[in-house]
Each structure stands twice: as C-alpha cells, then as structure tokens.
C-alpha cells in the first residue's frame, strides 16, 4: 500500500556546535514507516547547515526573525504554502514558538496547515521566569529563582541566595558564577545577547539528566526517553549522551505531562543530586537537538507528533532501550557559491 505523503515545514536547521533540533527531527521523520515526507526547511540565517543538506531537506525558505512579528511571518508562510502546499509545520526554536502558537488557529482554518504545539498558557507557565511557581503548582522541586531587570539588583542577591548561583538568559545561555563580580559580568554578557530579564537561579549540584518527551494534550505521555550527558561542550551542550533507565525520571515526566496536559514535544532538564533528589531546571517547549536518540531507542517522537497532528489517536510507547549512545560529529560540507548566492538573494533554495 502506498504511504501517505506529507509536506512538512521544519525550522532549527542550525546543526552547529549549539544545534537546533531541526536536523534530528527531519532524520526521525525520514525514518518513518508510517508516512513519506517532503521536507521544507525554514531558516533564519544563510549559513544554517541544514539549508545545504539536500539529502534531508528538499527545499528551504528564509523566514523573518521572530522580532518582526506575527503578521510578517504569516505573510511569508502564506507564500511558502502557495508554493509547497504545507500539511504541517514543526517549529523548533523557543524564540519563534510564541508567534507560531498565536498563529495556530489561523494556519489551520485559513490554510489547513496543522501544528501540534503547547497552548499559550502552557508555554508561558513553564517559562524560566515562571518556573519556580510552576514547580510549586505541580509539586515538583525547582531551584529557587528570581527574575531581575537591572544589574543594580545583583548587589542585593546575597539576601536571597548564596554563591555559587546560576545566571540565565530568558531564552538561552547560562553561567555559573561564584562571586558578585562574575555575576555582573554574566548579567552584561547574557543580557547583551538575549535581552532582559535575566533569571537568577539557586545552584544545585549533581548529575544533569534530560528527558525528551511528547504529550498528547489530554494528559497522556505518548513517549519519554531519559538521557545523561556524557560529553559536554563549552556551551553546555551534549556532544554525546546515553539513554538511561530511571523510573523516577519517567514518573516525574508523566506527572508533569498529566498535570499540565502538555501538547507536543518537550525536553526536561533535571539535576539529580547525590542524595537522589530531582530538581527541574528547565522545560524546553519543543524537542531537543538529541531527539534522534529516542528514535534509536525505539521511540520515534517526531513521527508520533506528526500522526497526532494529522488526527490519529496514538497509544503510548511502552518501552525503550537504555544504554544507547548518541555521539555527535562535525563534518565539512562543500557548497558551491551559487547555492549560497541563491539563498542569500532569493531567500529560498
């Protein structure tokens, strides 16, 4: 029987040292035995490697930066849809999700384009700025945190925290600081790159573990695979990791998805202390860049997302393999100037 073919737009093609999840998501979709895909890449910059990975990405279109707003994005998507007849969009950047969530209904009703994203309430509640309250609401341990808007507030942090502490950007980046001077430096560096506010978080020492998971929006965890980072880059990203069998982590994930009725992919960043306690550090509202490990372990989360987005009811995955590793590598592609010129001037390739 001929498989269904979906035209799926995917962002996060920046397969760099701090990678977006797009390439992993695309590999997972291409592995699917349930459907065939034509992949439309959505890129922000002309040097995102995925643009030139033609064995994975059939066509790429540049889209406006999230700061340009919803209307500009909608106009661009309208053009792309006219060319490509999109069935589904999978956005993979935290910073772009707000716009896509706001456009969910319009994309569906006006163009018939599906998404499978968390609601705006879910998206906002798990935001770093609100995470401590989120933890209290759902009875999950979260390190104490405080949102600050000016560097002047750093001088009074010692009333609430003891050093070391963690200085975090609102979307990305984090530094562990041991002195007030380092806190000022981290504030300036991160706020210059990602804007305000800055989140100050209590430092919890332990082993960092992550979970990639997907919820069906009704409280069911369709899949979850925990991973421990084994090799970490200077940007704190996992360059290799191993799937682990940790029942407490899975229960914590299920509890969180059940209580929030989370819809779509997510990544939990958790610290396991030496005393065996689990602290939730972050909830990323999309698949992680290492999501292909889940496929290797027997759970294809991106495929599950597509099937649910297209209206299928899925039963949860029951098992996965622990002890599977992912090891990233770097690879130099040779690209003709003509291709770079095309994406730079026409905004599509």
């Amino acid at each position: 029987m001929k498989m269904k073919r979906y035209n799926i737009a995917v962002s996060g093609l920046n397969a760099i040292d701090s990678p977006g999840p797009g390439i992993s998501v695309i590999r997972a979709l291409r592995d699917s035995k349930k459907f065939d895909v034509r992949i439309i890449g959505l890129s922000y910059e002309t040097l995102e490697p995925g643009i030139y990975m033609h064995e994975l990405v059939d066509k790429t279109y540049q889209i406006p930066l999230p700061s340009a707003g919803m209307e500009v994005l909608l106009m661009r998507l309208k053009y792309i849809h006219a060319e490509e007849k999109l069935d589904l969009i999978i956005p993979n950047f935290d910073a772009e999700l707000f716009n896509f969530i706001k456009l969910t209904e319009k994309l569906k009703t006006d163009f018939g384009i599906q998404t499978f994203l968390p609601t705006l309430e879910q998206f906002e509640a798990r935001h770093k700025v609100n995470l401590f309250e989120f933890g209290e609401t759902h009875q999950i341990k979260v390190p104490k945190s405080k949102t600050i808007f000016t560097s002047k507030e750093i001088s009074s942090l010692h009333y609430h925290f003891s050093y070391p502490l963690v200085v975090k950007g609102k979307f990305y980046d984090a530094s562990i600081v041991y002195t007030i001077e380092q806190a000022y430096a981290a504030f300036n560096k991160i706020s210059a790159k990602w804007g305000l506010p800055i989140i100050i978080q209590e430092f919890v020492s332990g082993q960092e573990v992550n979970v990639t998971a997907i919820g069906d929006g009704k409280g069911n965890t369709i899949g979850a695979v925990p991973m421990r980072k084994q090799y970490i880059t200077d940007k704190g990203k996992a360059w290799s990791g191993i799937s682990i069998d940790d029942d407490k982590l899975l229960k914590m994930t299920s509890k969180l998805i059940r209580s929030t009725k989370w819809r779509g992919g997510m990544e939990l960043e958790i610290v396991k202390t030496d005393e065996g306690e689990y602290y939730l550090l972050e909830i990323n509202p999309r698949f992680p860049a290492w999501v292909y490990l889940a496929v290797g372990c027997g759970q294809n989360h991106p495929e599950a997302l597509v099937r649910m987005a297209m209206g299928e009811e899925l039963k949860p995955f029951k098992k996965y393999d622990s002890g599977k590793l992912f090891i990233r590598y770097s690879y130099d592609m040779i690209v003709n100037l003509k291709e770079f010129e095309t994406i730079s001037t026409l905004g599509e390739l």
Binding site: M227, R228, I244, S322, G323
Partner: peptide, 18 residues
C-alpha cells in the same frame, strides 16, 4: 539487579549511564 556485565569486565549501570 539491573547492572549489565560482560565477559571482558565492562560494567554498565543503566539507571545512571555510568
């Protein structure tokens, strides 16, 4: 119980990844 062990002395703890 869940520790994996092979004949060449490689020990793997699936709950921690160690």
């Amino acid at each position: 119980k869940n520790i994996a062990l092979n004949d060449s002395g490689f020990i793997f703890d699936p709950s921690t990844g160690d």
